[in-house]
Design a protein around this nucleic acid. Sequence first.
DNA 1: AATGAATGAGTCTTCATTCAT
DNA 2: AATGAATGAAGACTCATTCAT
Lengths: 198, 198, 198, 198
Amino acid sequence: METTTERKPTDRRKQVLEAASRSFAAFGYKATTMDQVAKAAGVGKGTIYTFFANKEELFEQIVKDLIAELKDVAERTLDPALPFADNLLRILQQVLAYRDRHGLIVKLSQEVKEFGTPMATGGLEAVERSIISYIAGHVSNAIAKGEIRESDPVLTAYMMLKMYLALTAEGGHLHEPLDTDQVLASFRFYCLEGLAVG
Amino acid sequence: METTTERKPTDRRKQVLEAASRSFAAFGYKATTMDQVAKAAGVGKGTIYTFFANKEELFEQIVKDLIAELKDVAERTLDPALPFADNLLRILQQVLAYRDRHGLIVKLSQEVKEFGTPMATGGLEAVERSIISYIAGHVSNAIAKGEIRESDPVLTAYMMLKMYLALTAEGGHLHEPLDTDQVLASFRFYCLEGLAVG
Amino acid sequence: METTTERKPTDRRKQVLEAASRSFAAFGYKATTMDQVAKAAGVGKGTIYTFFANKEELFEQIVKDLIAELKDVAERTLDPALPFADNLLRILQQVLAYRDRHGLIVKLSQEVKEFGTPMATGGLEAVERSIISYIAGHVSNAIAKGEIRESDPVLTAYMMLKMYLALTAEGGHLHEPLDTDQVLASFRFYCLEGLAVG
Amino acid sequence: METTTERKPTDRRKQVLEAASRSFAAFGYKATTMDQVAKAAGVGKGTIYTFFANKEELFEQIVKDLIAELKDVAERTLDPALPFADNLLRILQQVLAYRDRHGLIVKLSQEVKEFGTPMATGGLEAVERSIISYIAGHVSNAIAKGEIRESDPVLTAYMMLKMYLALTAEGGHLHEPLDTDQVLASFRFYCLEGLAVG
DNA sequence: AATGAATGAGTCTTCATTCAT
DNA sequence: AATGAATGAAGACTCATTCAT
C-alpha cells in the first residue's frame, strides 16, 4: 500500500464534486469560478471538463446528488409506527447530522432565481420541489390520521421546509447559530405549537 | 429657468435609483448591468457614476432607502392600543400594498450571500437585521403584556419574517401565489396557532 | 485643427475593419486572434465588440464589404461598347489596382471550408459565388455575340476566376510574383488562346 | 508470437497516418484534433506521440508521403512515346482514380497559409512545389518538341495544376461536381484550346 | 510499448469603470 | 454636468502535450 500522501486517481471526480459543492455553498453559482474549483479540488482546470461538460452540468450533478442523498436519509430514518411529529423531528435530526451539506442546500434555495429564469426554472427548484413533495405526502397522512390540524399539505410542507432552513443555516448571520437540540425544540415550538397563548 | 422639455437635474438621481431597484429585483445583483440601469433610467451610463461611486454603492443606497421606507410604513401603521397580533397583521397588510417593493426585498434576501462573503457581510443583511430588530422590540412588548407565549424575541421576530417572506414572493415558483387575504390567514395559521391539534 | 497624431475617433470602426482584414488575409480566420486584431488596430479588445457582436460577424462584414467593393469597381469599369475580352482585361486591370485587397480575396477563397461546413456554407463562398455569377452574365453575352466559343457560362466564369487568382496573389510562394502587365498577358494567353499549337 | 487478435505493432503507425490523412482532408489542420485522429485510428492518443513528436510533424509526414505517392503514380503512367497532351490527360486520369487522396490535396492546397507564415513556409507548399516542378519538366520537353506553344514552363505547370484542382474538388460548392470524363474534357477545353474563337 | 487521465496556456467574450468631449 | 465610446481584467472553455501506470 502507498505510504505517500497521494490520493487514488479515481478520487478526482469526487474531489471536484466536493470542492465545487463547498464553493457553490460558500459563494453561490455565479461567484464561483472554475479556476477556484480546480484550485480547491487540487486538480487542473481541464480536469473538471473531463467529467462535466460545463459549469452548469457540474452544478446540476451536485443538485442531483444532494436530492438523492436527502431522500435516502429520510427513507432510512422514517418509522411508520411513530406519530408524524416524532418522525418529522427524527428525520430533521438525521439531516442535521450533515451540517456540511446544509450550507449548500441553503445557498441553493436562496439562489433559486439567480440565473435568470431559464436555468432557474429547469434547474434548482428541483431540490425544494422534491423535498416539499416528499414532506407533503407525509403531511397528508398525518392529517388523515388526525395527528395535525387540517391544512393544505403542500403549503404546509413548504412552510415547514422554510422554517427548518431558517432555523439551521440561513440564519447564520442573523441570529446565533443554534445547536441541534435548539433547532429541534424551536422547530417544534414555532411549527407545531404556535405563538398564541394557551 | 429651462424652457426645454428637460426634467429637473435633481430628478436624475431618483430615476437611477428606481431603475436600478427594478432591475435588481428582477434579475439580481450580478445579472443587472450598468448599461441596463442607464437605459432603464433614461440617462447616460456615466451619469450613474456622478451619483454613485460604483455598482456596489448604488446597491447599498437602494438597500438603505428600502429599510427606511419599510420602517416608515410600519411606524405610521402601528396603533399601540391594539393587541400585538392585530398590529402585526395590519403592518403586514400595509407592507403588502407595496407589492412592487416586495420583489426587491425577496430577491435581496435570497441573494444575501451571492457576493462572496465580503460584500454580503457589510451589505445586504442590513435589511433583514433592521427589520428583525424592529419586530423584536414589539415581540418583547407583546410577551411582557402576555399577548403571546414566552420566547426569544429576536428568534421569534426572525421566524416571523421568514414565514412572511415564504408566504409572499419567495414561493412564487413553489406554490400558487397567494392573494393578500390568503397571506394574512396563512400567516395567522402557521405563525400564531400552529399545527398541533387542539 | 489638431496638430497631434490623433486620428478622428470615428475612425475606430474602420481601423478595426482594416486591421482585421489584414490579419485574416495574412493568417486566416482561425489563426487570427481578437487580441491580435485589437493590437493591430491600436484599440482595446473590447472596442471591437462595440462594433461587431463576435469574431464571426466581424469576418462577415469584411466579406460583405469586399463583395460590394469589387462589384463597384467592375461596374464602373465596364464599357458595353467594347468587346468581351477587352472589358474582361480592363476590369481585371482595375481590380488589380487593389493589390492589398487581393491577399484577402485569395486567403478567403482558400479558406472557404476551414470552418467546418456550417459557417462555410452560409458564409465565405458568398464572395466567389457573387463574382462568378457576375462574370457568368457577361460570358453569356459574349457567347451570344460570338465573341468567344460556346461553353457553360458558369463553369467558364469559375475557371476564369481561378486562373486570375492563380496569376495574382495565390502564386506568391509558388512562382515569382507577376507585375500587372504580366498578369494581363498571361491571362490572355492561358485563358483565351490556350496552349495548343496553331 | 501473439495469439490474440492484436494487429502487428508496426500497423499502428500506418493506422495513425491514414486516420490523420482523412481527418486533415475533411476538416483541415486546425480543426483536426489529436483526439479525433486517435479515435479514428483506433489507438490511444499517446501512441501517436510515440511515432510523431507533435501534430506538425505528423502533418508533415503525410504531406511527404503524398508527394511520393503522386510522383509514383505519375512515373508509372507516363509513356514517353505518346504526345504531351495525351500523357498529361492519362496521368490526370490515374490520379483521379485516387479520389480519396484528392480531398487531402485540395484541402491542403487551400490551407497552405493557414498556419501563419512560419509553418506555411516550411510546410505545405512542398506538395505543390514538387508537383509543379515535376510537370514543368514535361512541359519543357513538350515545348522543345513543338507539341505545345512556347511559354514559361513553370508558370504553365502551375496554371495547369490550378486548373486541374479547380475542376476537381475545389469547386465542390461553386459548381456541380464533374465526373471523370467531364473533368478531362474541360481540362482539354480550357487549358489546351482556349476560349478564343477559331 | 501503449495508454488516456490530467494539465494549463491560449481563446473568445462580458461588463464595470474611466475620461475626452 | 452629462455622456457613451473605449477599455482591459476576468471568466468559461478547448486542445496539444505529458507522464504515471
